[in-house]
Amino acid sequence: MTVTPLRTHPSLDHLDALESQAVFILREVAAECERPVLLFSGGKDSAVLLHLAVKAFSPQRLPFPVMHVDTGQNFPEVLEFRDRTVERLGARLVVARVQDSIDRGRVVDPGPLGSRNRLQSVTLLDAITEHGFDAAFGGARRDEDKARAKERILSFRNGFGQWDPRAQRPELWQLYQGRVNHGEHLRAFPLSDWTELDIWQYIEREQMALPSIYFAHQREVLKRDSMWLAVGPHVVPREGEVTEWRSVRFRTVGDANCTGAVESDADTLAAIVHEVAVANVSERGATRADDRFSETAMEDRKREGYF
């Protein structure tokens, strides 16, 4: 046994290796599936995913549309970034609105301040059926959650859009096989093996643009469920809650009423990379109320067809 570690792939560092793996998956699914779509929310992970998709097929245009499941409770900075990015790339954007699912009576309106997070699964599955998509690329990472840590890179969904964690297809080597019968579909996760730190190191290396709310800024916030929530149309102070101005940034971007901000002075990519490298709390633990319902909140939502 040697004392000096040998590089597993000579001259490939971990970001090159992760980039190459993601590009490989994007090309493989695009080639094997009839009608793929890339889920793009404007968040950092889906921004990296879209950036990689552009690289995978450059100089051709993207061979698939991008889709946003719009809860109607987004941060305006994120929607602005979504539209600007899609226009810059000349990509085709499909917007599936939770409000339309409510209007059609597919889901119950939780009220102006209620969470629409869980309703997204219905809107997503209806859009997949309506457009006949047989594969949906998502930016989910296995380090985010214990149920995601169990999921295949190509994750099979039955005719009801459900994930069955007890009966996943074997996935050997890099032989990703994307064959599905009519009505079934795949979710494909090219960023499965990336960690939060890898994402930020890659964004810094590529000097990618992101929504401004990822960088430290002054914002009016209030403390609820031990999280800093941004005061705005979807978060109104309740009795006894005090609002204050703080220097914050967002580590994850979901709906405005269930995504917490973290106190931070990191206003550059280099500062964010450093902050993430020394963090004591996970990104979802710090910022996502939607994961706190139960021990298996993510697993339960994924079984229903969630991202």
Binding site: R142, R166, T296, E299
Partner: peptide
């Protein structure tokens, strides 16, 4: 830490692969 599915925790067994990530100053592990 790795047995994250409900059935795994109920039965105390591992059903499917869990992927975890670790890094030391020289190496990143999957």
């Amino acid at each position: 830490v790795t047995d994250g599915l409900r059935a795994e925790r109920e039965q105390g067994i591992t059903i499917d692969v869990a992927y975890r990530y670790a890094a030391t100053p020289t190496r990143k592990f999957i």
